[in-house]
Design a protein around this nucleic acid. Structure first.
Length: 495
DNA sequence: AAAAAAT
């Protein structure tokens, strides 16, 4: 019954939708679109195994708009515009991007969409939703905030989409997702997309999808065939910083996302790269939402050459023709590797994924290779670390180079430890400064980028105060997050 | 272990 669909025109999409697609220059659906669109149009629940960049968003957005179209009305009354399709996504940038796409596909129809996410003023969102929107996109927390404020009503939702479901579980969104699902009508169509498929994802799927059809484009947990992967051994963290600039230049990369495991590391690397003459900027969760969106926009426009990012950018972001990704750190979880390198080689284009690893990180490579079921060639990369005089003190001025608005590092220390005892521990994750001689010390063994390493001991009060944010205080503030397995949260219930 | 996400 699966007829080969070769053109968007064959899906039977209504004229306003097809016209928008055509105007955007699309004629042929991607494999996931070819599979998913007819199923969604039939009203089926769909479980999609697809990374972004496969055209996934259009794969659900186009048929959703088609399904909503017959009842679309141009009535000015907001009451006639209940939210009929709800799309949730793990990060604010991704939600925003989905909304932009939906709005583009819907521009010739009467259908309207809006996006809600945190980190920005809620009032414009309330105003937008008041206008009446058929399609609402959002991140879970702010969406629930709107529900509580009664600015959003989800009781008329006909189609519910969970994008990047694996990521949402990783981020502890399950309780929020369940609250959202409880607000939806029992009878509805569900679509769920995930790039990786753990047991937890399957359990979640079983719990809320009804008789779903599976749609799969890429091999499970596989990385794109068209992405050339390499890993480089480097001696140290300092070497990694220098290596990034070298890799960008040697490979003539016009644009690249560099992934760092930490926010601090991302900020530092970006600053270093700027010093090295590359147009670089960092994006991570400690930047204001305004900055995050502006940086991303500037990267998309090609102004920024190197985007240094934490995993906030690992999933879902669609940057056209991104030629390369560099892992400044190997990710802690192999799934994250799949997502990160999924930023390149998108929609059939070729891409390069380069990873840097210190000796300590080499063990992560094996797990990654196991997951992606392929070997990643490893080379050694000799780089000249920054030209500092031997024995020179790391510049204090580095501290003042921190851009305004970016948080300083935390200087908290474990209490009751001697200065000697804590120094090596602190340095371990602070850019590699060490007091003890380095095993195979290159000339710059004492070099450190750690702005606090030589900082004089500050306030004795710190030590007298009870430690802030310790085990007793932490759970009381902030949202409750559970690390219980999905099965437990789902009450052991099986579909 | 880290990051992200409502305030």
């Amino acid at each position: 019954m699966t007829t080969e669909i070769k053109a968007f025109a064959d899906f039977g999409l209504a004229e306003p939708i097809l016209r928008a697609v055509t105007e955007m220059g699309y004629t042929e659906p991607t494999p996931i679109q070819a599979q998913a669109i007819p199923l969604v149009l039939q009203g089926r629940d769909v479980m999609g195994a697809a990374q972004t960049g496969t055209g996934k968003t259009a794969g659900f957005a186009l048929p959703i708009l088609q399904l909503l179209l017959p009842k679309a009305s141009s009535s000015a009354s907001p009451l006639r515009h209940p939210v009929r399709a709800l799309i949730i996504a793990p990060t604010r940038e991704l939600a925003d991007q989905i909304h932009v796409n939906v709005a583009a596909y819907a521009k010739h129809s009467q259908l309207r969409s809006a996006v809600v996410f945190g980190g920005v003023d809620i009032k414009p969102q309330i105003a937008a939703v008041r206008q009446g929107v058929e399609v609402l996109v959002g991140t879970p927390g702010r969406l629930l905030d709107h529900v509580e404020q009664k600015t959003v009503n989800l009781s008329q939702v006909e189609i519910f989409v969970m994008d990047e479901a694996d990521r949402m579980l990783d981020m502890g969104f399950l309780p929020d997702i369940q609250r959202i699902i409880n607000l939806l009508p029992k009878k509805r169509q569900n679509l769920m997309f995930s790039a990786t498929f753990s047991g937890d994802i399957r359990k979640l799927a079983e719990s809320f999808l009804q008789n779903p059809v599976s749609v799969e484009v890429a091999r499970r947990n596989a990385t794109a065939e068209n992405v050339e992967q390499k890993a480089y051994k480097v001696d140290s963290t300092e070497a990694k910083r220098a290596a990034v600039a070298k890799l960008v230049r040697d490979n003539g990369l016009s644009q690249v996302i560099v992934f760092s495991n930490t926010k601090i590391g991302a900020g530092r690397l970006a600053r270093q790269l700027v010093q090295d003459g590359l147009n670089a900027a960092a994006i991570h969760g400690d930047k204001s939402q305004q900055e995050r969106l502006a940086t991303l926009d500037s990267f998309k426009r090609g102004e920024i050459v190197v985007l240094v990012a934490t995993d906030v950018a690992a999933r879902g972001l669609d940057i056209a023709e991104l030629p390369a990704v560099i892992n400044y750190d190997l990710p802690y979880s192999p799934e994250d590797y799949v997502h990160r390198i999924g930023r390149t080689g998108r929609a059939g284009a070729s891409g390069i994924a380069l990873s840097l690893m210190t000796p300590a990180e080499e063990r992560y490579l094996a797990e990654i290779e196991k997951l992606i079921k392929r070997q990643i060639p490893v080379e050694s990369l000799a780089v000249v670390t920054p030209p500092r005089e031997r024995g020179a003190r790391p510049e204090r001025s580095e501290r003042s180079e921190r851009p305004r608005g970016e948080r300083p590092e935390r200087t908290e220390r474990p209490r009751g430890e001697s200065e000697e005892a804590r120094a090596p521990r602190r340095t371990e994750d602070r850019g590699g400064a060490r007091r003890t001689p380095r095993p195979s010390g290159p000339p710059l063994a004492g070099y450190s980028n750690d702005p606090f390493f030589f900082k004089p001991y500050e306030s004795p009060e710190d030590e007298k105060q009870p430690a802030e944010g310790d085990a007793a205080a932490a759970p009381a503030s902030g949202r409750k997050r559970s690390s219980r397995p999905v099965a437990a949260l789902l009450g052991g219930k099986k579909g």
